[in-house]
């Protein structure tokens, strides 16, 4: 359960949980929740979003666990060739393009950038909640545009994966050529789709800057996407290792 070990350490910020059963969220008022009722405070929202992410990573993990088990079964299981009455295997190992190594480095770098962006936005959000009077100007978040760099590196990785597909095809390995190449396309493709989701979320966070949405909201999006991004990086390393080591 990689997701649990990755995300179980997300302790900070420590939020007082009240007594048993969790503290009741405090709301601005009664009535039927007309506009103007307050939101739960920042730590509560952050905690809830992180918990949501932790839960959301479980089915992603199950999806890839399931693909992995299909990989192992499909690789190991011989089928009957009626011509010879022999059990045969039709698994031809694929030589992975070296480009994937470069892509891996790009993705890991993006993960570092993501972590810096996450901390940066978090600091800004904490500062904003400490001084609730005015919205913190963007400049207070520091000068390095880590968020933009992460998005750029993420897109570069996706482009690199696309190039790797083209190289595979140039070497004669198409989706249906051999089961091993089917799995290469399947696993890289499924991972890319998930990473695109992360890129999209970061773009939304960037858009929040333009829309002048509260920094706390942006911080929650960036924080949760950050953990998701790290998960995607770890998942990629796992996929790469599976494809390379269990050929």
């Amino acid at each position: 359960m990689a997701s649990f070990s990755t995300t179980a350490t997300l302790g900070e910020p420590q939020v007082s949980r009240g007594d048993e059963g969790g503290a009741p969220p405090i709301f601005g008022g009664g009535g039927d929740g007309r506009p103007g009722r307050g939101l739960p405070d920042y730590p509560t929202r952050l905690r809830r979003a992180r918990l949501g992410l932790l839960v959301a990573l479980t089915p992603v993990l199950m999806l890839f666990v399931s693909f992995t088990s299909a990989y192992v079964v499909r690789q190991g299981l011989p089928t009957l060739d009626p011509r010879t009455n022999q059990l045969v295997r039709d698994w031809i190992p694929v030589k992975l393009p070296a480009l994937l190594l470069v892509n891996t480095v790009v993705l890991l770098l993006s993960s570092v950038g993501m972590e810096l962006a996450r901390r940066q936005t978090k600091l800004a959000a904490v500062a904003a909640t400490a001084r609730p009077a005015k919205e913190v100007p963007l400049s207070a978040e520091g000068k390095t545009p880590w968020l933009a760099m992460t998005i750029a590196l993420g897109l570069l990785f996706l482009f690199g994966q696309w190039m790797a597909w083209k190289q595979l095809a140039a070497n004669g390995f198409y989706v249906a050529t051999t089961p091993s190449s089917s799995f290469v396309y399947l696993l890289t493709g499924a991972h890319a789709v998930h990473l695109m989701g992360g890129v999209l979320a970061l773009l939304v966070a960037g858009l929040f800057v333009l829309l002048r949405r509260p920094v706390t909201t942006r911080s929650i999006v960036v924080d949760v996407t950050g953990w998701y991004w790290h998960f995607m990086a770890a998942l990629w390393v796992y996929i790469f290792a599976l494809l390379e080591l269990a050929r």
Partner: peptide
């Protein structure tokens, strides 16, 4: 459970439309 069904559905769609043999 649903993640696993989703994975099976994806593999089946590939078998049907992309010529793979899962």
């Amino acid at each position: 459970a649903f993640g696993v069904l989703l994975s099976a559905g994806i593999l089946l769609l590939m078998d049907r439309n992309l010529g793979t043999s899962f």
